[in-house]
Simulated scan of single mutants.
Amino acid sequence: MKLKINGKTHEFSGDTAMPLLWFLRDELQLTGTKYGCGMALCGACTVHVDGEPMRACQLPISATEGKSVTTIEGLDTQHEHPLQVAWAEHNVPQCGYCQSGQIMQAASLLAKNAAPTDEEIDNHMSGNICRCGTYPRIRNAIKSAAKGE
């Protein structure tokens, strides 16, 4: 089976029921995508599959065949995506563990809605948990990236 991840094709010959997260982290050493709850409830493992946010901890590799997967490492190889810049400028991370999933979820929002309201941001980000409670900073960073500040 061939997988397209961050623009590169990778071969996979194992159990296609294996969650994508384990292939990303263990085989490809793409450790930016985090393991959080393992039940697709916290959002730490969020990646894009054909532009849609998906939870890699519960997504079988078979579901990605013929699709394009983007991880935090592939969002912007120079780490200069407007959200990554805004995250730093707004000092969003505290412990930082959830941040790659938060950024990937936010990127999917801005790809569809260039000027989201606070309510739209809160609704779209509601499935991503930050145990440090940096939600106001996350919202501000998203608004800043949307405005191109």
Rank of each mutant, 00 (worst) to 15 (best):
T77A: 12
A115G: 01
Q94F: 01
G14I: 12
C132M: 02
G36A: 13
G74T: 07
N91S: 13
A114N: 09
P19C: 09
V47W: 04
Q102A: 14
W87V: 01
T70D: 00
I5H: 04
E89F: 04
E73F: 05
A111V: 02
I138R: 03
A111L: 03
L83G: 13
C37V: 13
E119I: 07
A56I: 07
S100I: 09
Q105Y: 06
D76A: 08
A146T: 02
S100N: 12
C132A: 00
H79S: 08
A114D: 11
L59Q: 15
S62M: 14
L75T: 12
E27S: 15
Y135P: 02
L24D: 07
A88Y: 00
I138L: 00
N128H: 08
M104E: 11
G133C: 07
E120H: 04
E65L: 14
A88R: 08
Y35N: 00
H81K: 04
A115K: 12
R25Q: 02
P60I: 13
T16E: 10
T71H: 10
S13G: 09
A17H: 14
K143A: 08
V92A: 04
K112T: 09
A40L: 06
T77L: 13
Q29W: 13
I72N: 05
A44Y: 02
E149L: 09
C130A: 01
E119W: 05
A115H: 06
K34P: 13
H90E: 08
E89C: 01
G66I: 14
G43P: 02
P60M: 11
E120L: 06
I121M: 06
I138C: 01
P136D: 00
H90I: 00
R55M: 13
Q29E: 15
T117Q: 03
H10E: 10
E52I: 11
G133M: 06
L21N: 05
T134N: 10
M1E: 05
P93C: 07
K34E: 12
D118L: 04
Q94A: 06
Q84L: 06
T46M: 02
T33S: 15
M54Y: 11
G66A: 13
M54W: 11
Q84W: 08
K143L: 14
S100A: 15
V47N: 03
R131V: 00
Y97M: 07
D26V: 01
T70Q: 09
G133Q: 07
A141F: 03
G51W: 03
E73W: 03
Q99F: 04
S126E: 03
I142A: 08
G7N: 06
